[in-house]
């Protein structure tokens, strides 16, 4: 099966994020950049499907030349080749989905696997938008993906339990936390990744509308919560919750 995995470069989840004083963005000095954790799960799932069924895993990202780094990491995990859609300007989810839809039209994968959300903008939009633009079914928040011929059955993490849906390929699946535990790139994997194909395509050569309809005007630090006080015992804790905070 040919699987396309869109990935995004994001700050390491352990990074402390600071908003710049002028509100124009976040401070990026000392930020370590990684593959969005949910996209890493998507790469892992794609590799496992390929290991069972054969096929090809193609990575794609939309960003600056430096994003090659994350594509190389994914190639070192075992993906076959990668595409970097070069773009420097800020794009909204609609534009990202349009770019992906265009490339998917050329690449013709049977399955698109990607993270349920990127942990930088926390939008949780691109997979669903892409599925609609392609006219494909979607399964978001996947915790299990099973195949029988061309039919896919997906277990989804929803409010209050697990939901199971089924459809025929092609389809878009977005990954949740418990789908798998991503592998680390091995040293031979890293060596091999250097020779794998990484194609660059300028975003503006694709002929899709890139003008953002969602604009971020400014960023601000959230209101800071003041630390309270320490209590000495369980008895004191229950007492203050009852008489002072009046919540129990």
């Amino acid at each position: 099966m040919k699987i396309l995995v869109p990935i995004k470069r994001v700050p390491d989840p352990a990074t402390t994020i600071r908003v710049l004083p002028d509100g124009s963005g976040i401070a990026t000095d000392n930020v370590k950049w990684v593959i969005n954790p949910f996209d890493e799960i998507a790469i892992e799932e794609a590799l496992r499907i390929k290991e069972k069924q054969g096929g090809e895993v193609v990575l794609i990202t939309i960003g600056q030349s430096t994003w090659q780094e994350q594509l190389r990491t994914g190639l070192a995990m075992g993906a076959d080749r990668a595409i970097l859609i070069k773009n420097d300007a800020a794009l909204d989810s609609l534009a990202l989905a349009r770019i992906l839809a265009k490339v998917i039209g050329d690449e013709n994968p049977e399955l698109v696997l990607l993270g349920k959300q990127a942990i930088d903008d926390d939008s949780n939009q691109v997979g669903q938008m892409l599925a609609e633009m392609l006219g494909w079914p979607q399964a978001t928040f996947a915790s299990k993906v099973e195949f029988a011929d061309k039919k896919v059955t997906v277990t989804r993490e929803v409010d209050g339990g697990l939901e199971t849906i089924a459809f025929n390929l092609p389809a878009v699946v977005t990954t949740d936390l418990r789908l798998n535990e991503p592998r680390y790139a091995s040293l031979p994997g890293i060596m091999k990744a250097r020779k794998k194909e990484l194609k660059e395509i300028p975003a503006d050569s694709l002929g899709v509308d890139l003008a953002p309809k969602l604009k971020i005007k400014t960023l601000a630090a959230p209101p800071k919560r003041q630390a309270g006080r320490k209590v000495g015992s369980v008895q004191e804790l229950v007492q203050v919750l009852h008489t002072e905070a009046k919540v129990i």
Binding site: S93, D122, S123, Q128, M129, M133, K213
Partner: peptide, 23 residues
């Protein structure tokens, strides 16, 4: 932005060609 809202709204936005603000 429940599990259903998160699943549905972006797909609807794409169908309408509309921008979307999450949460």
């Amino acid at each position: 932005a429940t599990a259903v809202g998160k699943d549905l709204a972006p797909r609807l936005a794409a169908r309408l060609g509309a921008p979307m603000a999450s949460e």
